[in-house]
Simulated assay, not measured.
Amino acid sequence: MTGYVFVGLFTGFAAAMTAFWLTRWPTRRQSALTMSAGILLISAWSVVQPSSALAVLGCTATTVTGGYVAFFHSLRLLVFNFCVALATAVAACWRLGAETNLATAFAAFGVIVFLNASVPLAIAGATRALGTYAMRSDVDPLTGLLNRRGFTDVLLRRLERDTPAGDDLVVAMVDLDGFKSLNDSRGHAAGDRALRAVGELLVQAGPPGSAVCRAGGEEFLVAAIGSAETIEGDVHRLCEHIAELPHHVTASVGISTAALAQLPGDDGSPQIDQLIENADSAMYVAKRNGGNRVHRA
C-alpha cells in the first residue's frame, strides 16, 4: 500500500513540475526546491519497493536530477543529490545481496555509483566549457572589454539585484576625437595601442563598479549605478584623463540617465537600448561643439 502512495505522490509531483516548466521557467530558488523534493521522492520510492531489483533500478533515476543540478545549480546541491543516491543505493543493494548474492549486489552498486558520478560530472564539465565559450563571445578581442551584447547582459544582471531605490543608471558613450588622423598618420598599430590604453583607463579610473564596453571602432560605453551627479563627475574626470594619454586623442562623451525606479523589473533591455541611443545623441552634440567635452542628454 505504501508503494502505491509513493507512486501516486511521485506521479503527481512529476506532472505538476512538467506543467509548471511548460508554462513558465522557474526562478533559481523554485528550481532548487523542486529538485530537492524530487531527489527525496526518488529515494523514498526506491526504499519502499517490495522488489529489491526495482529498488536498485529506482536509484538510477537520480542521474536525471543530478544532470539537471549540474547544469543549472551549485556544487552543494549536486553533492546532496549524490549523497542521497549513495545512501539509497546502499539500502537497495543490501537487500539485493540478501536476495541474490554479494557479487550481484556489488556490481549493481558499482553501476549506480558510476552513473550518478559520471553523468553529472560530464554535464558540469560541458557547462563550464560552454560558459567559457560564452564569456569569450561577450569580450572584445582587442581590448579585452565587454562587447555590446556582453555589456547589455551585465547590466541586466545588475539590475536584477536589490539596489537602493534612489539610485540611477547612468550610461556614457565615449567617442575618441582624432582617432582617424592617428590611424592615417601613425598606422593601425598605433590606433590599436590607443584603443587598449583608453579601455584600460576606463576600467581603472571609471566610476566604481562600472561596466565598460567597446561598442565598436573608437567608441566605448561606460555604465554605472549610483548617484547620477557623482557618476557624471567621474565621467568628466575620465574625459580629462583620456586627453592626458600619450596617444594624441581626446574624447567626446554623451551621458544619459534613468532612475532605477522607472525601469521595469522583468526585462530592461529596451530601456538600456534607449539610454545608449540617448547617450549616443548627446555624444554627437559634444563632438559638434568641438570635442574633448561631456554633454548630458
Rank of each mutant, 00 (worst) to 15 (best):
L142M: 12
G131V: 05
S118Q: 08
S118M: 12
A129L: 11
A122E: 03
A129I: 13
T132Y: 03
G131M: 03
L142D: 10
Y133L: 15
T127H: 10
R149C: 13
R136G: 15
L142F: 06
L146T: 11
A129N: 10
R128Y: 04
V139E: 15
A117C: 13
P120W: 01
R136W: 08
D140L: 07
R136V: 13
M135N: 10
L146P: 00
G131F: 01
P141K: 01
G144H: 06
D140F: 06
L121R: 08
A134F: 00
V139W: 00
T132Q: 12
A126V: 11
R136P: 09
T143D: 08
T143P: 02
L130P: 01
R136H: 14
A124P: 00
T132H: 08
L145E: 09
L146W: 05
I123C: 02
A134C: 02
R128N: 07
F151T: 07
M135T: 12
N147P: 11
A126P: 00
M135R: 12
I123H: 00
M135W: 05
G150P: 00
V119A: 00
S137M: 15
L142G: 09
F151Y: 10
F151K: 06
G144T: 07
I123E: 02
T132I: 13
S137F: 04
T127D: 05
G150Q: 06
A126G: 05
R128S: 11
L146H: 11
Y133E: 15
Y133G: 09
L142S: 11
R148I: 09
L130K: 14
A134M: 06
R128F: 01
T132K: 11
P120Q: 02
L145H: 09
L121S: 14
G144V: 07
R148D: 15
D140A: 09
L130T: 11
A124F: 02
D138S: 14
I123S: 01
V139A: 13
T143M: 06
G125D: 03
G150V: 04
G131W: 02
P141D: 04
T127A: 14
A124E: 01
P120Y: 03
N147W: 03
N147G: 10
L130C: 05
G150A: 06
R136L: 15
R128E: 07
L121Q: 11
A134G: 04
Y133H: 14
T127E: 03
A117N: 07
P141G: 03
P141T: 03
M135D: 14
N147D: 15
